[in-house]
Simulated assay, not measured.
Amino acid sequence: MPEESTWRSVFRNDLFKGKVALVSGGGTGIGKSIVIELASLGATVVISSRNEEKCHKAADELNALGFSGKVAAGPSTNIRKEEDIQKLISHVVERYGALDILVNNAGGQFISDSADISKRGFQAVVETNLQGTFLMCREAFNQYMRDNGGSIVNITIGNRNGMPGMMHSAAARAGVENMTASLCVEWIESKVRINCVRPGIIFTESGFENYGPAGEYFLEKIVPSLPAKRLGSAEEVSSAVVWLLCEGAGYVTGSVICVDGGGSYVALPLVEIEDKTNLPTYGYLPMKAKL
Rank of each mutant, 00 (worst) to 15 (best):
P269R: 07
K81T: 13
A115Q: 12
E247C: 04
N104T: 11
I117A: 06
T253G: 02
V103E: 03
I257R: 03
Y284K: 12
I194F: 02
D275Q: 13
I201W: 07
G283S: 09
D260R: 03
Y284R: 10
N159I: 01
V71M: 03
V241K: 03
N148C: 05
G150W: 01
E53R: 14
P227A: 08
T44E: 05
I257G: 00
R230L: 01
G121Y: 00
A240P: 04
E247F: 00
E82W: 01
L270C: 09
E205L: 07
A21C: 07
S5T: 14
Y217E: 14
F141D: 02
A39Y: 02
V153A: 06
L231E: 10
R230M: 02
G108C: 04
E82S: 13
E53N: 11
W243C: 10
T253V: 02
N51E: 10
E83S: 15
T281Q: 13
Y282C: 07
H91P: 00
K17H: 11
N154S: 15
T204W: 02
G165R: 05
M145W: 03
R12F: 01
L268R: 04
D275C: 06
V23K: 04
V176I: 13
S49F: 00
A181F: 01
I201F: 13
F110V: 07
C184L: 04
P164M: 02
A72E: 12
S182Q: 14
P164Y: 00
L102A: 09
E236I: 07
S48T: 15
G121T: 09
D60A: 12
N78E: 14
M145K: 04
A115V: 15
Y96A: 06
E186S: 13
I101Q: 03
N154A: 05
G215W: 03
V237K: 02
G27T: 09
F141Q: 01
Y211N: 11
V185P: 04
P164N: 06
D260N: 11
V242T: 15
E216G: 12
A73C: 08
I188N: 09
I34C: 08
N63Q: 09
S169G: 10
K221T: 07
A181N: 10
K17L: 14
P280G: 09
E139Y: 15
V45K: 02
Y265D: 13
V223H: 05
V35K: 03
R8T: 12
I117Y: 02
Q86F: 01
S76G: 15
